[in-house]
Design a protein around this nucleic acid. Structure first.
Length: 590
RNA sequence: GUCCUCGUAGCUCAGCUGGAUAGAGCACACGCCUCCUAAGCGUGGGGUCGGAAGUUCAAAUCUUCUCGGGGACGCCA
């Protein structure tokens, strides 16, 4: 359905037109002086010059046309030329009642559905997830859900790091630790075992060990590189072993991402495009795009309009080896063939902006993508500790994601036990749900591009702009609805009983609900989950204010009570749908 | 050196397609549970929006310069 701001603007534009002024001057915005009015229009001042008239005269002319408006209870012209607007209660009530009847509470899906691939997550196999992987997962997941909700066809691709030097390091070290494995026997011709010859914890132990040693030991490093080569050139045993590494690692990654309520549609890795690289490189040479510079194969990506130096995009290193640019470009090529996306969004650290700019330009220049394929870089800032520096453990190391989550859950558990008498089991289960909300809301409520400070005390607090506060509000509503049901009434029966508001806090709540479709749409267009956070925070505030002023269950007027129950149910639905778009959920009790 | 980005209350952040007294939260000081979860609600103090100039009837918002933090700048990603 049409956004409430548009209905209001249309009414105002009509008035401008009727009064003999340009229609577009009637644009209405949310009031920045809530003490004076609910919405405002500044068009009279913008039009003063054009019509050579004092703004207040224009405003008066327009206000006169609105005296019998079905939308405005009050439309007054105020010096120097503001039009201050107050909505009719009936109008607000009717709008919200209509929202209730719609599947997506008044949100209209996009009229131009696009096929979108979102590249996020980006973990490496055989390495545990750490806090550096957190933002990509959280933001990417939310952006994916929002776009999908808006009606786009969205594919989430994890883009696994599963192919380069790390694989050789692991295999080489494995060869040293378990030399008798059949995978290393070049003369072995039988079937390889189905069971992997290692566990995930062994794997996670091997990589850092091998990585460290390779930096100190040249011969060791050479052996590892030989292993990488054997893998990449398709030696059977190495391929089989590699499959085990991937399988064990992916199982573990899936478990960890699941805990974060993050899910990918595609688990492709760099390995998936390995075979495409030679052909792609050939095409770039044949097309006259790629040439040798300083020993390396590069494609120029400078453009006329550039104000800065853009170095060429490197396709092959001077030793002939592929690098990340190569796999990223080949991945674009593969996606264009298989998914045929209209848009590819990369949710990665903002420091990679220049790098991706080069890759995008190169992809465009070499015709890997169509002219109208949109390549979007969605960069995010660093998660910092309280000292403003990149987040570290107390010992100064990189914190594992599991540890971070455990720490939050512990804190949540403590808070639950403090405030309520519940069993340890229930408290632990609730702590997980609320903890995830604390973590994700803490991240998403900031603009993605900015660095932010991770503060466990602040994020887990139920005071202020936090996940737990939002969840607490939902739980309160659920509790009232549950009690209503217990009294033998049916919430569903009063589903659409919403009426015009009878007091100010109810009206405020309704007007906030009415902004739902505009908020979600803006969040989608701008890839800005933080706008949803801001919206639901305002909504939760509006509800809690209403809650304190209104005794709902003890209301004697049955019709009025039914209207409130319907309003509460709508508020709950809007809040729960919104947090689902952010990637977390609410418990029934907390 | 070049380019990008950020600088708003003691702290953490909104607002930035220009509009009336710059908003939240935390912290601080008060007040509110015979009543639907007080993990809540309300009241109060606190800011020359880093600085300067310009455009405009109107600038936190646009332009230029400047200071400060962070970042990027061909064989890492």
């Amino acid at each position: 359905m049409e956004k409430i701001i548009e209905l209001i603007s249309d009414e105002m534009k009509n008035a401008f037109e009727q009064a003999g002024y340009e229609r577009e001057l009637g644009k209405v915005t949310l009031s920045n002086r809530p003490d004076l009015c609910e919405y405002q229009c500044n068009g009279a001042m913008a039009g003063a010059k054009q019509y050579k008239k004092a703004p207040i005269m224009i405003a008066n002319d327009v206000a006169a046309k609105l005296s019998d408006s079905s939308i405005f209870a009050k439309a007054e012209a105020v010096a120097p030329g503001f039009l201050n607007l107050t909505l009719k209660n009936e109008f607000v009530g009717a709008y919200v009642k209509k929202m209730r009847a719609e599947e997506k509470y008044g949100l209209e899906e996009t009229t131009k559905p696009a096929k979108i691939v979102i590249d996020y997550g980006g973990p490496n196999v055989a390495k545990p997830l750490h806090v550096g992987h957190l933002r990509s997962a959280i933001i990417g997941e939310s952006v994916k859900r929002i776009a999908r909700y808006m009606g786009h066809n969205v594919i989430g691709d994890i883009h696994l790091g599963d192919w380069g030097q790390p694989m050789g390091l692991i295999m080489n070290e494995l060869k040293i630790r378990k030399p008798d494995l059949v995978y290393f026997d070049d003369n072995y011709t039988g079937e390889y075992p189905a069971e992997p010859p290692f566990t995930i914890s062994e794997l996670e132990d091997i990589y850092p060990f091998a990585s460290k040693r390779s930096k100190e030991d040249e011969a060791y490093k050479a052996d590892a590189m030989a292993c990488t080569y054997k893998l990449q050139s398709g030696v059977k045993g190495y391929r089989a072993l590699w499959n085990h590494i991937i399988a064990v690692s992916v199982t573990d990654l899936k478990r960890n991402y699941e805990r974060l309520n993050v899910a990918f549609d595609l688990w492709n890795g760099e390995s998936a495009v390995h075979d495409l690289i030679p052909g792609m490189v050939d095409d770039m040479k044949k097309g006259g795009y790629a040439y040798v510079s300083e020993g390396a194969l590069v494609v120029d990506v400078k453009e006329e309009a550039d104000t800065k130096e853009i170095p060429p995009c490197m396709i092959l290193k001077s030793d002939g080896a592929a690098l990340y640019n190569t796999t990223d470009l080949a991945t674009i090529m593969m996606r264009m063939e298989t998914e045929k996306p209209d848009r590819i969004i990369y949710v990665v650290d903002k420091r990679q902006e220049l790098y991706f700019d080069q890759v995008f330009r190169c992809a465009r220049k070499t015709k890997l993508v169509k002219d109208d394929t949109e390549l979007k870089f969605l960069g995010f800032g660093t998660m910092n500790g309280k000292d403003g520096k990149p987040f570290k453990t107390r010992e100064g190391g990189v914190m594992r994601l599991e540890s971070l989550i455990a720490e939050i859950n512990e804190e949540m558990f403590r808070k639950i036990k403090e405030s309520r008498d519940t069993s340890d089991d229930e408290a632990a289960a609730t702590a997980q749900v609320v903890g995830l909300a604390a973590l994700k809301y803490g991240d998403l409520s900031n603009q993605a591009v900015k660095d932010y400070i991770f503060d466990i005390d602040r994020f887990t607090s139920s005071e202020g702009d936090t996940g737990p506060y939002i969840l607490y509000t939902i739980v309160r509503i659920k509790s009232i609805l549950a009690k209503y049901r217990e009294s033998g009434k049916d919430v569903q029966a009063v589903f659409s009983d919403i009426k015009a508001p009878v007091n100010d806090s109810e009206k405020q709540l309704m007007m906030q609900l009415a902004r739902y479709n505009a908020s979600i749409e803006a969040a989608c267009e701008e890839y800005a989950p933080h706008k949803i956070c801001a919206y639901i925070y305002d909504l939760a505030n509006a509800f809690n204010h209403f809650y304190h002023e209104t005794k709902i269950l003890t209301e004697e007027d049955a019709s009025r009570k039914a209207g409130w129950i319907a309003l509460l149910a709508l508020t709950r639905d809007v809040l729960e749908t919104s947090i689902d778009l952010l990637g977390f959920s609410a418990p029934d009790r907390m």
